[in-house]
C-alpha cells in the first residue's frame, strides 16, 4: 500500500518545527508502524537527509520508549496497543497520516518525535518507592498480601511510563501516571507506612513539573496502552 505521511520535523528544541510530507510507498501490511518509519528513514538517509527521529527500544510494547500521535490519537487507533505493536494492516492504501510528538510543556521536544519525559522520573523520585534497605527485609512470606490486593497493585504497576495519558489529556495532566504508582504501592501492605507523604509529595512534583491538572476528562485512560484506569 502507499501512504502519505505528514510528519512533525523539528531539528532541536530551539527550532520552531514544521510538518513535512513524505510518501511511504510499498508498505507491507505485516510491517509494524515503526518498521514502516524505518523504511521511510532508509530512503531519507540514502538521499542524505536526516531520518525522522523517534524513540523506541523493545518494540514489544513494554519499555514505554515509543509513542507519538497518529491522526490525533496517542499510539494510533488501536486500543491497548503501543505504536511499536501497531501493524500496518490497520491502514489501507491511500491513507493520509499526521504524525506529531506528544505535546506538553512538561515534555519538551528534543527532536522530531522525541520528547523529554524526565519529569516522570522526578515524580517517582519524590515518593514513588518503598524505603527498604537492601538486605534488611524479613522473609518474603513474613507479610502476606491478599490476592486481591496483589492483583490490584499489579494492574496499576503495569504502567510503562510512555506518556500517552499526558498527550491525550486536554489539560496535559499526568494524573493517570502519578496515580498508577500511588495505587500500586498503596495497595500493598509494604507501601502503607509512606502512604500519605507519598501522595502529597508526588502530586507536588507533578504540579511543579508543570503538568496540567486533572478535571476527570478520561481521555487518558482511553489512550493508555496498558489499560490503566482512572478508577
Amino acid at each position: 500500500m502507499n501512504l502519505t505521511l505528514h510528519v512533525w520535523r523539528q531539528a532541536g528544541s530551539a527550532d520552531a518545527g514544521r510538518f513535512e510530507t513524505y510518501k511511504a510507498d510499498g508498505v507491507d501490511e505485516h510491517m509494524s508502524f515503526l518498521e514502516m518509519l524505518d523504511m521511510v528513514n532508509e530512503g531519507l538517509i540514502k538521499d542524505g537527509r536526516m531520518p525522522i527521529a523517534f524513540d523506541h527500544d523493545c518494540r514489544e510494547g513494554i519499555c514505554g520508549m515509543c509513542g507519538f500521535m497518529i491522526n490525533g490519537e496517542p499510539h494510533g487507533p488501536l486500543p491497548s496497543t503501543t505504536v511499536c505493536q501497531l501493524h500496518m494492516r490497520n491502514y489501507k492504501d491511500g491513507d493520509e497520516l499526521w504524525i506529531e510528538p506528544w505535546r506538553a510543556r512538561a515534555f519538551p521536544v528534543i527532536q522530531d518525535l522525541v520528547v523529554n519525559r524526565g519529569a516522570f522520573d522526578r515524580i517517582v523520585a519524590s515518593g514513588g518507592y518503598i524505603t527498604a534497605r537492601t538486605g534488611s527485609a524479613p522473609d518474603a512470606h513474613a507479610v502476606l498480601v491478599p490476592k486481591a490486593a496483589a492483583d490490584l497493585a499489579m494492574d496499576a504497576a503495569e504502567c510503562i511510563a510512555c506518556g500517552a495519558c499526558v498527550a491525550a489529556c486536554p489539560n496535559a495532566s499526568a494524573m493517570l501516571f502519578t496515580s498508577a504508582k500511588v495505587m500500586h504501592l498503596g495497595a500493598l501492605p509494604q507501601g502503607q507506612p509512606e502512604r500519605y507523604t507519598r501522595v502529597v509529595e508526588m502530586v507536588a512534583t507533578h504540579d511543579t513539573e508543570l503538568f496540567g491538572h486533572c478535571t476527570n476528562h478520561g481521555a487518558c485512560q482511553t489512550a493508555c496502552p496498558k489499560d490503566i484506569t482512572v478508577d
Binding site: 505528514h6 500521535m69 506529531e100 506538553a104 512538561a106 489529556c169 486536554p170 489539560n171 508543570l210
Partner: peptide, 13 residues
Amino acid sequence: RARPVAYKKYAGD
C-alpha cells in the same frame, strides 16, 4: 500553560 503548542490533529475531542 501545560500545553503551549496545540496539536494539529487532536482526536481527544
